[in-house]
Amino acid sequence: MNAIAEPYNFAYLDEQTKRMIRRALLKAVAIPGYQVPFGGREMPLPYGWGTGGMQLTAAILGRDDVLKVIDQGADDTTNAVSIRRFFSRTAGVRTTVDTTEATVIQTRHRIPEKALNNDQIMVFQVPIPEPLRFIEPSETETKTMHALNDYGVMHVKLYEDIARYGHIATAYAYPVLVAGRYVMDPSPIPKFDNPKLNRSAALMLFGAGREKRLYAIPPYTDVASLDFEDHPFEVQKWEHSCAICGSTESFLDEIITDDKGSRQFVCSDTDYCAQRVAQAEVTQ
């Protein structure tokens, strides 16, 4: 991006817009899992590239906040770099790669491995906020289904998966029931991360810029992944451990290392991995 010559308001958005977003966020926190429409603005990044998450971050960021931005679990992926630079330029806040130091963590597609605390806020980038979208394309109809708690069709999809494949075939953006009432799309995090949502100490905020919806899970809320009693929810498992730090507990990325298809697996959460390596070096 070219250098921005003119001065912008703190974190780019004007105060009125931030206030509007915060009001919507309060509503969202009051009704866990419910999609609140908001007057999303055009941002300097394209729709689909994190504008929803960015608007939420801009609305809640204060001068003393410490911001971490990750994409696919890594701080160094190009779009995470781009977003982090955006806030560092427009808000001047301290940025970090250390999960424990951050007060606000904006993320795309992962939740950090390290458990979060009650002083932290996660902001998720959401492409399609509507969990029923691919079963029911009409917005008018899905709104009614949420209002009437009419979620039969959600389990229909899971039933079909089991009938066709023998088990539930959703690997990410796995739908959850929040506080026993609203069915929610947790954004395209792998289902591996779903359990981290349940009764988390942190506040979870979700922003969809293009679709102009936001939603939230307050701390210590029950979040249950949808399943059947006889086909219970399961997380992914690998046969390998991380080639760098040796972890057997984290989500692993597959790296192809030569053109014969040799592969290695490394932690997706780069900070978690680096911390483990640092720890190991200390104890040696």
Partner: peptide, 16 residues
């Protein structure tokens, strides 16, 4: 925006 966002890394979901 949404079409071009497919260029962004999706390897975690793909891994899943």
């Amino acid at each position: 925006g949404f079409v071009s966002h497919l260029k962004l890394p999706h390897y975690v979901d793909f891994q899943a």
